[in-house]
């Protein structure tokens, strides 16, 4: 059994050290590179905390596409996404399916943004005039 700190915690500590102790000493290109490294570490830490979306995405897609549940795997997930993609491209979809597909895409995309750039979700959406 691994003891504390967990991988995501370790990454957070490393990122803090980078941001607070190392980055202020740098300037120009190195400072920019350090900030990019910190950004990358942040993404990985958030992905670790979120866990793999594989099982839940497989289940949601099987439900959406009308398939019986099967064991989740990277291949299965890719296959299901490909099927959804093909359906969208044929765009013969009826409005009810559209609604469900949209809800699924919005939810999965939101979770990805939570990992890649959670600040984006806080930015106010500009009003559509």
């Amino acid at each position: 059994m691994r003891d504390a700190p967990r991988s995501d915690e370790l990454l957070d500590i490393a990122r803090q050290a980078l941001q607070q102790q190392i980055t202020p000493q740098l300037d120009g290109g190195s400072r920019h590179a350090a900030m990019m490294v910190a950004n990358a570490l942040g993404i990985v830490a958030r992905q670790l905390r979120a866990g793999s979306p594989q099982a839940s995405e497989c289940a949601a897609l099987e439900d959406l596409l009308g398939h019986a549940p099967s064991p989740p795997s990277p291949t299965r997930l890719e296959q299901l996404n490909r099927e959804l993609t093909t359906r969208l491209r044929q765009h013969g979809a009826n409005a009810a399916l559209d609604e469900n597909v949209y809800r699924y895409l919005l939810a999965t995309t939101r979770s990805l943004v939570e990992e890649s750039n959670p600040k984006y979700l806080q930015e106010p959406a500009p009003p559509r005039t």
């Binding site: 590179a33 990019m36 490294v37 950004n39 990358a40 993404i43 409005a95 559209d98 609604e99 949209y102 895409l105 919005l106 995309t109 939101r110 990805l112 943004v113 990992e115 890649s116 750039n117 984006y120 959406a125």
Partner: peptide, 28 residues
Amino acid sequence: SLVLALTGHIVPELELEILRMTPPAASA
């Protein structure tokens, strides 16, 4: 190439924006 790797991680927010701009009522 770290900058390229991180560019890949802006794709989700671009996708989110696409979805926000194209809700299904409009599609219907």
